[in-house]
C-alpha cells in the first residue's frame, strides 16, 4: 500500500502527468476522429431512412451520443472531484476542472440538436418538459462550476470549492436519467435499450458514441495539460519547457 501510494505520488506529479498525457493524446485523438467520420458518414449516407420520421431521425446519431456524453462527463468529473476533495491531489483537481467546459459543450449540443429535431417532429423547438428542463439545468450547473472556478483567486481553493459544487450538482443526474419515466414527457423514452433498433441504425449510433468518448479523453488531457502550465507556471519544469519549445 505504501509503495502503491508512493508510485501514485511520483507518477501523478504534475510534471510526469504532463508528459504522460502528451504521449497519450494521439492514441485517443486519431482513432476518435476516424471513428467520428466513419460513424457520421454511415449515419448520413448508408443508414436507411426511418419509416416514420424519414431523414430527420438522422439527428439521433449526434443527439444521443452528445446526451450520453453530457451525463458521462458529469460522472467522470464527480469521481475526479471526490478524489480531489479527499486526497487533495492536484492533478485530480485540474482533471475535474478540465471536464466542466467539455461537458458544457456536449450539453449545449444535446439541447441544440434536440431542439432542431423537435421542431419537425413535435412542431416546437422547445417545451418545458422534464427531460429538456433537467438537461438545461445541467448546462447551468456546468457553467456555475466553471464560473466558481474562475471567481476564486487561489487556484487550489477555487478547485476545491468548485469540486464541492460538482458533488452537489450530482443530484441532477438521476433526475435527467429517470425524467422520462417519472413524468409524462414530450421526449420519448429509452429507445436504444428497450425497443429493437435495426443494426443499420444502431451501428452508426454506437460508433459515434465511442468516438465522442475518445474525443472527450483527448480534450480532457489537452485541457488538463493547459491548466498544469497555468498553475505551475513558476515551477522549474514549466520554465524549462517554455524555453525549449520553439516559439512559433
Amino acid at each position: 500500500m505504501n509503495r502503491l501510494m508512493r508510485w501514485i505520488h511520483i507518477k501523478g506529479s504534475p510534471e510526469n502527468y504532463y508528459r504522460l498525457a502528451g504521449r497519450l493524446i494521439p492514441w485517443f485523438a486519431i482513432p476518435g476522429l476516424l471513428l467520428l467520420v466513419t460513424g457520421i458518414v454511415y449515419g448520413l449516407v448508408f443508414a436507411p431512412p426511418d419509416y416514420q420520421q424519414g431523414d430527420a431521425y438522422r439527428i439521433i446519431f449526434i443527439h444521443v451520443p452528445s446526451a450520453w456524453m453530457s451525463l458521462f462527463i458529469y460522472l467522470g468529473m464527480s469521481v475526479a472531484a471526490a478524489i480531489a476533495l479527499i486526497w487533495r491531489i492536484k492533478v485530480a483537481e485540474l482533471t475535474a476542472m478540465a471536464c466542466a467546459p467539455i461537458g458544457a459543450v456536449f450539453t449545449a449540443l444535446t439541447l441544440l440538436t434536440g431542439s432542431l429535431w423537435g421542431k419537425p417532429m413535435w412542431g416546437t423547438y422547445w417545451e418545458w418538459d422534464a427531460r429538456m428542463t433537467s438537461e438545461l439545468i445541467l448546462l447551468f450547473i456546468y457553467l456555475a462550476i466553471m464560473g466558481l472556478y474562475q471567481a476564486i483567486e487561489d487556484r487550489r481553493k477555487a478547485a476545491r470549492a468548485a469540486s464541492l459544487l460538482v458533488l452537489v450538482g450530482l443530484v441532477n443526474i438521476p433526475i435527467i436519467h429517470y425524467s422520462v419515466q417519472w413524468w409524462s414527457t414530450l421526449h420519448q423514452g429509452v429507445t436504444v435499450l428497450d425497443r429493437k433498433m435495426d443494426p443499420s441504425m444502431l451501428w452508426p449510433l454506437l460508433i459515434v458514441a465511442v468516438a465522442t468518448k475518445l474525443i472527450f479523453a483527448t480534450n480532457l488531457l489537452q485541457r488538463t495539460r493547459l491548466l498544469l502550465i497555468s498553475t505551475e507556471s513558476r515551477k522549474r519544469w514549466v520554465r524549462e519547457m517554455a524555453k525549449t519549445e520553439t516559439p512559433s
Binding site: 485523438a29 467520428l36 457520421i40 448520413l44 431512412p49 424519414g54 431523414d55 430527420a56 438522422r58 439527428i59 449526434i62 443527439h63 452528445s66 467539455i102 459543450v105 449545449a108 449540443l109 441544440l112 440538436t113 432542431l116 429535431w117 421542431k119 419537425p120 474525443i215 483527448t218 480534450n219 489537452q222
Partner: peptide
C-alpha cells in the same frame, strides 16, 4: 427528404463544436 435544414444545422453545429474543443 425535406428535413435538410434541421439535419445540416445539427451536424454543422456538432462539427464546429468538436473542432473548437480540439
Amino acid at each position: 427528404g425535406g428535413y435538410g435544414f434541421f439535419v445540416w444545422w445539427s451536424y454543422g453545429l456538432f462539427a464546429i463544436a468538436i473542432l473548437w474543443l480540439l
